[in-house]
């Protein structure tokens, strides 16, 4: 690690530990809220990526990589599979490609829960954004690291 990057501050690292779960939760909130109100996969993904980048600034590159566990490009892959896969269910009910499908789940206590292909698509976007932003951030951090 080069000297100019080595600015570990106690306030930042303590703050980051507290903020990180909050930010991730907030990003999930944005993701789920996105269907009818401002929010959605893209903005949620950006918040999640920012949260992990905060970890990178507060500690170091390696800590952020271990926290993510998988390579960010693999996240992009899963995201793309979900987003592209969301186009397919419509075909099984004989509708045109990419037509939105809705399913209602009746849960005992919580009431009815509406699930849909746009939601799957949005989760795909979320993962895709997290993965691609982190790929860029990690590439730059890695260059600084070596």
């Amino acid at each position: 690690m080069t000297s100019r990057f080595n600015m570990r501050s106690l306030i930042l690292s303590t703050g980051a530990t507290l903020l990180l779960p909050l930010l991730i939760l907030f990003s999930l909130f944005l993701l789920l809220r996105g269907h009818n109100e401002p929010g959605g996969g893209f903005i949620g993904g950006l918040v999640a990526a920012a949260a992990i980048s905060l970890k990178l600034f507060a500690e170091d590159y390696r800590a952020a990589r271990t926290m993510l566990r998988v390579h960010p490009l693999q996240l992009v892959g899963v995201g793309l599979v979900l987003a592209a896969g969301a186009s397919l269910p419509a075909l099984f009910v004989g509708e045109s490609f990419f037509t939105a499908q809705w399913w209602t789940l009746n849960l005992p206590i919580l009431g009815s829960l509406k699930l849909s292909t746009p939601l799957i698509f949005d989760i795909g976007v979320y993962l895709g954004v997290v993965g691609s932003v982190l790929t860029v951030v990690f590439t730059l951090a890695e260059a600084e690291h070596s």
Partner: peptide, 9 residues
């Protein structure tokens, strides 16, 4: 797109 995505995972 699908093959690329699976290949990426």
């Amino acid at each position: 797109l699908l093959f690329g995505a699976v290949s990426l995972t």
